[in-house]
Design a protein around this nucleic acid. Sequence first.
DNA 1: GGAGCGGCCTGGTCTATACCAAGTACATGT
DNA 2: ACATGTACTTGGTATAGACCAGGCCGCTCC
Lengths: 239, 239
Amino acid sequence: MQQLDSHQYLGVRDDIAARIAAGEFKPGERLPSERQLQAGGGVARGTVREALFQLEAEGVIYRKDRSGWYVSPPPVVYDPTRWEGFMSYVEAQGRRPETETLSKVEIVCDGMLAQIFSRPVGAPMYWIRRRRLIDGRAVLIESIIVDAARAPGLIEHDLNGSLTSVLKTVYGVGVARNKVDMRPCALTRDEAEALRVKSGLPGLSLVRTCYDAQGHVVEFDREYWRHDALTVSVDIRVR
Amino acid sequence: MQQLDSHQYLGVRDDIAARIAAGEFKPGERLPSERQLQAGGGVARGTVREALFQLEAEGVIYRKDRSGWYVSPPPVVYDPTRWEGFMSYVEAQGRRPETETLSKVEIVCDGMLAQIFSRPVGAPMYWIRRRRLIDGRAVLIESIIVDAARAPGLIEHDLNGSLTSVLKTVYGVGVARNKVDMRPCALTRDEAEALRVKSGLPGLSLVRTCYDAQGHVVEFDREYWRHDALTVSVDIRVR
DNA sequence: GGAGCGGCCTGGTCTATACCAAGTACATGT
DNA sequence: ACATGTACTTGGTATAGACCAGGCCGCTCC
């Protein structure tokens, strides 16, 4: 929106980006502190921060609260048409996936869920919240609903691995159809806290509805991703 | 990442969000100026701006440079598996689509395009750049490459409508397969300027590769969307 | 060795002020 | 009617300062 050189903060941005590109700072490494970067260029701290925000929006760097700014690792590729779980596709890309179960409880079906699952209000459901990490960095949190009638005792299992394979191997429940809604969003309040990022950071909201071969909803899943952690790739025949 | 009330800017955010939710400001309408909002709450202008950035990241408001802050209209839904063009699906959702052709030129195939199209380096290609608007607001810019051998004279046509239907009706070229890559990104430099937004605003990058029934690449398209303008919805059978 | 305690450093928030460039609205001139 | 100019408003950029809370690390004490 502005000419190339006219803004200091874009100049500072380019400096830092160039130093990263040159390999002075490598993925996962910490940048010098804001006050040090400031001293180097003779600019105000606010200007340095503006440049850092720019790079953050581009996915080049990220921050750990009150610890520093770090160079972002490359994103992972996610293909919603392939029904492999997080654990396997992250590993297939040479990265180290982890899952933490934040909570798992039995709830009763409310109006919205009743509609999604075509089940009566009051039917028992499981509600699972998990946080998932790649190479030790929290990249998404998810909130999963599963019909308790389809997978009785599900939450007694260890859910830190692949939920997909638990449903398949233990309950014989497979997925035949997958509906995915995606939209850019802001990570606010709860999501931001769980991902340990600042409220307001851009993210990607991904809502998945999984159906079995009979067209029944097996699993309803809301995911909130850090915006710099993934690329979505879909390859489909046109209807 | 922080407790609820502890930050002024979140308080200001909530105030403004509440006034929007209450209908005091409607979609498309302008908010009071930053200096007016500041006077109302007894806070510094920087704090008001922080709150506005927050709401912008959430997609609630957007800005027009040096004109003011406006309430965002709802996003449109885009389904990459449905091969309808922008013009028709936007219209189907009760919105007013527009297209502006920024440039259309003949170029020669470079190494990258040669690989994508399976055509020799140096083969003629058309390069079309368009801006698309919804209800008068620029929401995306796109850069399209089409094999000139498949659609000779394409750029002589009016391309402010649906390119899809021109390819189909004039050249008999249909699309059978559609590969879509999506990732959150920052709108920088050129894209930001074309969309008249500030460099660094979050956006969604969408790369489409369209194939005909024989598996040849028909069209290669890079789109940059405002992050608050769309929701992507995919519904697919699992492979 | 391990737990606990400080203190330093970091980013996070906030104030106040200044100036600029581009948009807006309105009066003016043709 | 239409272009033109101008005064004013708006967001955009930048400075300099201040204080806070949480992360981090080393020291001390058990």
